[in-house]
Amino acid sequence: MKTQSASRTLQNPPTSTAYSYSRLSALWDQHRQAARISIHRICRHPLGSVLTLLVIGVALALPTLLSVLLGNGESLSQHWSGGTQITVYLSENTNAQRAEQIMTLLKERYQLKNARYISPEEGLVNFERDTGIEHVVEQLRKNPLPGIIEIMPEIADLGSAQVQTWLNTIRQFPGVENVQLDLAWVNRLQEMARFANRLVHALALLLGMVVLLVIGNTIRLSTQNRREEIKIAKLIGATDAFIRRPFLYTGFFYGLLGALLSWLVVSIVILWLRAPITQLAASYQSVFQLRNLSFMGAMELLLAGALLGFAGALIAVNLQIRQIEPD
């Protein structure tokens, strides 16, 4: 309490000016000045600043690029697993009429997007068309293909326990020989995606640390170079917050500009990869196109960069500012 009254007695309150001047606009004024000073400092050593920005830009670009590619991969694998069907193989003696009955039953019991009966004859025609091998039956004397029903459930995740139960139930149907859902590759793909996801996170964490350290070190050097200035400012009544402010803005701007740079790098790389990947997809009769970082993703990147820069500067400046006292 005594301390407060001490400072109040000795304080020179800016409210005694002719200006109507609130604390808030004083703070705004000081922040504007600090931001201006920090931009001035960044611009005064262009080479050093650009090098720092490049390090930050590359460090942020790497995990960002990987996560964008991963996002593309995930959308692609979703597209594929969405197209996965369950194939119900009917037994040899199941005729078309029974097949229709089974199909109606399946439609009633489960929520299906689609169900289609393919008779042995139709299957053979398809087979001959797809493979280009004609007159197979004449050689085999008998159509070896069973009738099948292809169904596509509404449910997206075909790996779920629910779908597994369906398969087991359908397998028991009279007239059904077997039910197949090739989940192995879908599972494998999902595992790989999960692995890649973790890899990206680990990488993002490590490279985020790099950004933190690079900015922290830059700010530390900057406080060292400004020892005298800090001493003078303290001598004429600067609070720690006042001294810290320009350094924090510098860290913030470094982070933000570095993130902006990494956005640019990622966009260029994506653009560069787009043409060959589109061609590759086209060879698989797909119209897949590599997508760039979304707008929200870019905003997250900028935010992450700015926060990392701010945090790095805060740590560095707090460690330094206490050691620098006027003598």
Partner: peptide, 9 residues
């Protein structure tokens, strides 16, 4: 924390 305010005077 109050030193700066004294120094300003």
């Amino acid at each position: 924390a109050d030193i700066p305010y004294v120094r300003r005077r």
